[in-house]
């Protein structure tokens, strides 16, 4: 199915259905007041997956180490709160984004000269390195146990973090996600975003049209890292703790799986993937952890073999076939 001839001119305009996720998000708030803790996790995960979409889905950088940036953001907020008594949430998020963004720019500058298998390896190594470092820096990071019992001041001085029902956390996360989404959406529809897809589609040609390929990739990597850092910072703030579980191959693979399951390079894939994954995990994983893992594995194999566009891709196909 071909897009309409003027699709490029129109695609950045908001469509009515783009309100759906946000309407659903708000409706959830009123309909399931007892599930807001879960809902908050969901929103954080969506933001994390969205940040990955920018590099993996749009720029085509296959990385296994994206959890590193989530971790940098999470620990930045944690260390600021515990060691320096910096408990103000909004500035904490900004700090998390900045810290992760800087780490992203530097590591992008160093790592993005490689590609393919080597890139996969160096991103994996970087993340493992960070994990070990966080484990060793016990005085700052709390080592394996992390930093439990963090507390934060009121959001905007108005809304206290709500340890029991997660009401303010939920709305806070929804707002941060909306902001992050606007950033990503603006980027991917801009000329910059277009050039990222160009790099993904054909590197050789992108060089031949005179694009500063490596610079673009590094910038994209940095922005994506900053967003992942914000997601990490948000995670620490809403849960009130941070530990090494935010890191590691399983977490990195997890967010990649979420994105691919939803559909990468599709803007809303992060939403669909996170909802599908977390809801199923919530229902299955505690009762039947092994069955959950088995099902997940089989799903991945099936997606890799048959449904490369993920759930959204499947939906597009069905609509196209009609």
């Amino acid at each position: 199915m071909s897009p309409a001839p003027d699709a490029l001119q129109r695609r950045h305009r908001f469509q009515w259905w783009e309100l759906l996720p946000w309407a659903t998000g708000l409706a959830m708030f009123f309909a399931f007041p007892n599930y807001l803790s879960f809902g908050t996790q969901l929103l954080v995960t969506i933001l994390f997956a969205l940040s990955l979409d920018l590099v993996l889905g749009y720029a085509g950088i296959v990385t296994l180490g994206h959890a590193a940036f989530f971790c940098v953001g999470a620990y930045t907020v944690g260390i600021l709160a515990q060691q320096l008594g910096w408990n103000e949430p909004l500035s904490g998020l900004v700090a998390a984004g900045l810290a992760a963004g800087i780490v992203g720019l530097i590591s992008g500058f160093v790592l993005l000269r490689t590609h393919g298998l080597t890139l996969l390896m160096v991103t994996l190594c970087t993340m493992t390195l960070l994990e070990q470092a966080a484990n060793m820096g016990h005085a700052w990071t709390g080592g394996f146990d992390g930093m439990p019992g963090l507390s934060f001041t009121m959001i905007l001085g108005l809304f206290p973090f709500d340890v029991l029902y997660f009401k303010s956390q939920y709305l806070y996360s929804l707002s941060v996600l909306a902001l992050g989404f606007v950033v990503v959406r603006t980027l991917v529809y801009s000329s910059f975003g277009q050039s990222l897809t160009g790099i993904r589609e054909n590197l050789l040609r992108m060089h031949a049209v005179g694009a500063p390929v490596r610079g673009r990739l590094i910038v994209a990597y940095g922005i994506s890292a900053a967003l992942a850092g914000v997601a990490g910072g948000l995670f620490t703030q809403v849960t009130g703790y941070v530990n090494l579980a935010v890191l590691g191959l399983e977490r990195a693979a997890g967010v990649m799986i979420i994105l691919i399951l939803g559909g990468h390079g599709r803007l809303y894939g992060a939403f669909v993937g996170a909802v599908a994954y977390l809801v199923l995990e919530h229902l299955l994983a505690k009762a039947y952890p092994t069955a959950w893992q088995l099902g997940l594995g089989l799903t991945l194999v099936a997606v890799a073999l048959f449904a490369r566009g993920g759930l959204i891709g499947l939906f597009e196909k069905l609509r196209g076939a009609r």
């Binding site: 490029l8 801009s190 000329s191 050039s195 897809t197 673009r216």
Partner: peptide, 27 residues
């Protein structure tokens, strides 16, 4: 994977020096 229009636009954007512009939509 991109349309003919996008293909040509990518090249033209690079020539006009707007290939790295982030705020305005390519459309």
């Amino acid at each position: 994977g991109l349309t003919v229009q996008e293909n040509v636009c990518i090249a033209v954007s690079e020539r006009l020096g707007v290939g790295g512009a982030m705020l305005r939509s390519a459309g």
